[in-house]
């Protein structure tokens, strides 16, 4: 639990941070995953660039029908921000499921997203929200759709020198209901299965269905077949069950001490059913 020697810089501006990251510095956000790994010597970055003091990454604002959330927003910020609670409740609800209060007070949205833990909570919501991730380097900036950002277990489309600086989520219009349902691993608090549902029902018919899933396999994903099965339906119990049953189809589920692949897939369907049901109940 004693880390290797490392250099530590805590720049106050994004410009300096990006320059250091460009030189190979490893960004440190809330440190909720990185620090434990360093203490176990499973990770040994030579240079930590602590981005926690960069005020310009600390914002939550609405613009152009979207919410722009700076990478330094803590999970607690996301969970409790009136703007997010009011205009993108799915993200706030999901943040409230992360770890424990200590983790939520320190861990950040940007850090979690960049880490791409296959059992993290956010990816389910971000997939369902069709979020966009802003990646900034010393020389460029690009915005990537969440589906293109999460590539595999701990693997994202971040290039060397790039930093996640912002997450963009849509402002929910009326008629849309959302829900995040999670089956948690009792030791770590990570999701064994987490399902986020975002459903729009107009005149008694589902017009938009987005279902994001985390924990089941090596990467978060959108359950496209389940989504398609819902569109055009009223949302009866049978229709929900039928759609939820499709949520793990074609997915190569992972397995660990806490849940076999078979159980994960079973839970995915069960938690999809719960998420869809609750989301529909919130469409009114």
């Amino acid at each position: 639990m004693i880390p290797n020697t490392f250099e530590y810089t805590a720049p106050l501006t994004l410009k300096v941070a990006l320059a250091l990251i460009g030189e190979g510095g490893k960004p440190l956000a809330g440190g909720m995953s990185l620090i434990p790994m360093m203490k176990l010597r499973m990770a040994a970055p030579e240079h930590l660039v602590d981005i926690g003091r960069i005020a310009e990454l600390n914002y939550i604002r609405e613009a152009g029908g979207e919410l722009h959330i700076g990478a330094n927003a803590t999970h607690y910020d996301v969970e409790s921000s009136p703007l997010i609670v009011g205009k993108c409740p799915l993200l706030a609800e999901t943040a409230g499921h992360i770890g424990d209060i200590q983790v939520r007070n320190r861990g950040t949205l940007g850090g979690s997203v960049a880490h791409a833990d296959p059992s993290a909570d956010y990816p389910a919501a971000l997939q369902a929200l069709e979020a966009k991730i802003v990646l900034t380097s010393a020389t460029s900036q690009r915005t990537v759709a969440v589906g293109d950002f999460f590539i595999d277990t701990f693997t994202t489309s971040l290039e060397p020198g790039e930093l996640v600086t912002e997450v963009i989520v849509p402002v929910e219009a009326g008629l849309t209901g959302t829900s995040y349902q999670k089956f948690l691993q009792p030791a770590s608090g990570f999701a064994i299965v987490g399902v986020a549902a975002r459903i729009r029902r107009e005149a008694g018919k589902i017009t938009v269905a987005r279902i994001g899933v985390t924990g089941v396999s090596g990467n978060s994903y959108r359950a496209l077949k389940a989504e398609a099965a819902l569109v055009g339906k009223a949302g009866s119990d049978a229709e929900i069950d039928a759609a939820a049953a499709l949520v793990g189809e074609g997915v190569e589920a992972g397995a660990d001490l806490h849940a076999s692949a078979e159980y994960r897939l079973h839970l995915a369907a069960n938690y999809a059913e719960r998420a869809i049901r609750v989301a529909l109940s919130r469409t009114a």
Binding site: M42, P118, S119, T153, F154, T155, G254, D256, H258
Partner: peptide, 12 residues
């Protein structure tokens, strides 16, 4: 410490 990650990492 890596139990929950071994399977998915090996696959990847």
């Amino acid at each position: 410490v890596g139990q929950r990650l071994i399977d998915t990492t090996a696959r990847m």
